[in-house]
Nucleic acid binder design. Structure first.
Length: 435
RNA sequence: GACCCCUUCGUCUAGCGGUUAGGACACAUCCCUUUCACGGAUGCGACACGAGUUCGAUUCUCGUAGGGGUCGCCA
């Protein structure tokens, strides 16, 4: 039975690297019917916070990485907060002490006597990596205040929680021999490791908090991304599924996941490609689904939604023009208010030719006579007006767009007119001619 | 400083001794088009360097350079 875990330390927001580590563990568990455990490594009381822990859970849930054991999920190997497992660590430390593998410093810190033998890490990604007998000082297991150090609790919990595989960042590879030394000291079999490459900034430097795309909540949840898109993109960073396309569903990704295919070289983060994935997922959303995810971003920009059907249709009309949900408000704001601002170049274009006012008034006259108000009837009215004026409809459409939206880009003019209604359409044209 | 991992277009990558070195994103051009987009087509563009091994190296070996990581009483 496969058991894997994601073991974050709640010192800050969920990082994109952590999110991907959790993602690979999750894929592995789901593919092989294993158990995905979430363990909070909060042994450093000075740096850990409850908010950070909650933030991590929130981020994981948003990404759709559900855990089978852990906080809020329970399980037979809890508690899943290391801060609540002190008695277990005390018992394990006692075993080491009984075997003469530890010694106490003057100030009370407890150290582990390394075996100082060559240790080989059999890694699913990096292959066999052998570390020569170490010359490093013995490592500390317990601080003078009685609290435990990461390496120790990490190993003890992996033994206690019966982990079979450990997918973690490559930054841990250099320390893995220490963990194996500990497993050996306990007479336990180490799990199979898979150290995944790190995610770097676009310039190749180390990605850390504050860098673009580094924080799940700030960059993605609040940045207008869809969970599926982020999930898909992160999979492509360090792993190439054997498929002929890159856009793949969660189900497909789970089915395709193969640990040995994970790359061993670091990957640079590319926000443009991540956004491209988002655009792809955005476009396949239904009007209702798109409106549901876009709504918070609309309201955040102060747009007041009075008619949900119209609002949903308005949002849907621009779905192929945006990549991120955060871009939607600027594309649809005029659907929600009459006092929209005319963009500078629009005003310029409207005033460029004196006859524009007459053209708009002619269009308004034709529009005013329509007894039913559909996209087709709007189209008909504009064509009639154009015919009367001996111009092409194409000469009228841009002007109407400027008048109805104050912008030079957007959905089809007939779509805009239909959605805002006949009265508003006529009022907006009048307002534009008065500029 | 020591040790570990890594190195194909700008980016993510395919490739597992013989290929016109393929794809995706980005970028450029064209088509479509009432705008902006979408979509379609085309183009631009890479094997870090140096030795070996071999009939033949992007591919195997070694070295160099470069990037990343670890060496905490952080995780």
């Amino acid at each position: 039975m496969i058991r894997v875990r994601f073991a974050p330390s709640p010192t800050g927001d969920l990082h994109v690297g952590g999110g991907r580590t959790a993602l690979f563990n999750w894929l592995f568990a789901r593919k092989f019917g294993g158990t995905f455990i979430l363990r909070i490594e909060d042994t450093d009381g000075a740096r850990n916070t409850e908010e950070a822990a909650q933030g991590i859970l929130k981020g994981l849930r948003w990404m759709g990485l559900d855990w089978d054991e852990g906080p809020d999920a329970g399980g037979s190997y809890g508690p899943y907060f290391q801060s609540q497992r002190k008695s277990i660590y005390d018992a394990y430390l006692a075993r080491l002490e009984a075997d003469g593998r530890t010694y106490v410093e003057d100030n009370g810190a407890v150290r582990f006597k390394f075996s100082r033998t060559a240790i080989t890490v059999n890694d699913l990604v990096c292959g066999d990596v052998t570390f020569a007998p170490t010359e490093e000082p013995d490592m500390t297991l317990r601080r003078p205040d009685g609290s435990y150090i990461f390496h120790f609790v990490n190993v003890v919990d992996d033994i206690e929680m019966k982990m079979t595989h450990v997918f973690r960042g490559e930054d841990h590879l250099s320390n893995t021999w220490k963990h194996i030394d500990l497993f050996n000291a306990f007479g336990a079999t180490p799990p199979t490791y898979a150290h995944i490459p790190l995610i770097l900034n676009s310039d190749g430097s180390k990605m850390s908090k504050r860098d673009e795309g580094s924080a799940i909540e700030k960059s993605y949840m609040n940045g207008g991304f869809l969970p599926d898109a982020v999930f898909n993109y992160l999979c492509m960073l360090g792993w190439t599924p054997r498929a002929d396309v890159e856009k793949l569903s969660r189900e497909a990704l789970v089915a395709l996941f193969e640990p040995s295919e994970i790359h061993s070289s670091n990957a640079r983060f590319d926000m443009a490609k991540c956004s491209w994935f988002n655009a792809q997922y955005l476009r396949e959303l239904s009007p209702e689904a798109l409106f549901a995810v876009a709504r918070p971003f609309l309201e955040k920009e102060g747009l007041v939604i009075t008619d949900e059907a119209v609002a949903a249709a308005a949002v849907y009309s621009v779905k192929e023009k945006v990549s991120l949900l955060t871009e939607i408000p600027s594309w649809v704001h005029y659907f929600f208010r009459e006092d929209y601002v005319f963009e500078a170049d629009v005003v310029t274009k409207l005033k460029a030719k004196p006859e524009n006012v007459a053209l708009l008034q002619a269009a308004a006259s034709a529009l005013a006579t329509q007894t039913e108000w559909t996209e087709a009837s709007v189209q008909t009215a504009v064509e009639e007006a154009a015919k009367t004026l001996s111009v092409k409809p194409g000469a009228l459409m841009p002007l109407l767009r400027f008048a109805l939206s104050g912008q030079s880009r957007g959905p089809g003019v007939t779509t805009i007119a239909h959605l805002i209604g006949q009265a508003s359409t006529l009022k907006r044209i009048e307002r534009a001619t008065a500029l």
